[in-house]
Amino acid sequence: MITKDTYTFKILRYDAKAPDEKPEFQLYRIKVIPGLTVLAMLIRIRDEIDGTLSFRSSCRSAVCGSCAMVINGKIDLACRTQVAFFESNTIILEPLPNMDIIKDLVVDMEPFWDMYEKVQPYLIRKTPDPGKEITQSEEERSRIDQFVNCILCASCYGACPVVSRNPEYIGPAALAKLERFILDSRDERGAGFLKTMNNEKGLWGCDTVLRCIDACPKDVRPTDAIVELRKILIKEKMKQLFDKEGR
């Protein structure tokens, strides 16, 4: 049996083009059929009730990373969050934290992408390419598995307490991306590349409070990446110290 329940959506409204008007919640009451997602409801609200509501969306299947937001206090993708998942009939929606609001649930992701580009997020090779594939064992491929899954939705960046107090901190997604390449048996950037991250804006900024892991909709664990990359830096440092003593 399909039953309809009336839900109240409280959505934070703000327009950076009208900066004098403060952000405030607007209430929308709408009937919901079980099985619908928060994104499906947002689309209905925009279509049927308020055409001025702004939010990003595309794939509606948790792969494109467009619709990360704060849903009843927790960061998640609107498309994969079932309305019926919550015990209450009120759903509060806010934009991702740590980024400026452009309008309503849309934030300016420019800082996030700037950080992403800082890690040189691409395979770096020095040896010439073979005629066929560069071989890689199944085990080597599996090492990068979880980091390959990142959809760059910025949930982790929005959840990170370090980013909120230090906007110069590179953030969890960029470091997870870096680990994806450092761990890739085909990448030849070398550990020396990590020197640029050997500071508080980079690998030493993380508080290791694991908020990024909680926030990730794809089970990526950026903190694991950060800890592993720190170990490489420490090893390098130890090696230098021993080399000096040995001399």
């Binding site: 691409y122 395979l123 090779r125 390419d129 071989t135 199944e138 491929r141 390449f181 890739d184």
Partner: peptide, 8 residues
């Protein structure tokens, strides 16, 4: 060669 992580 450009980095695509195919299964193996």
């Amino acid at each position: 060669h450009w980095g695509c992580p195919f299964s193996r």
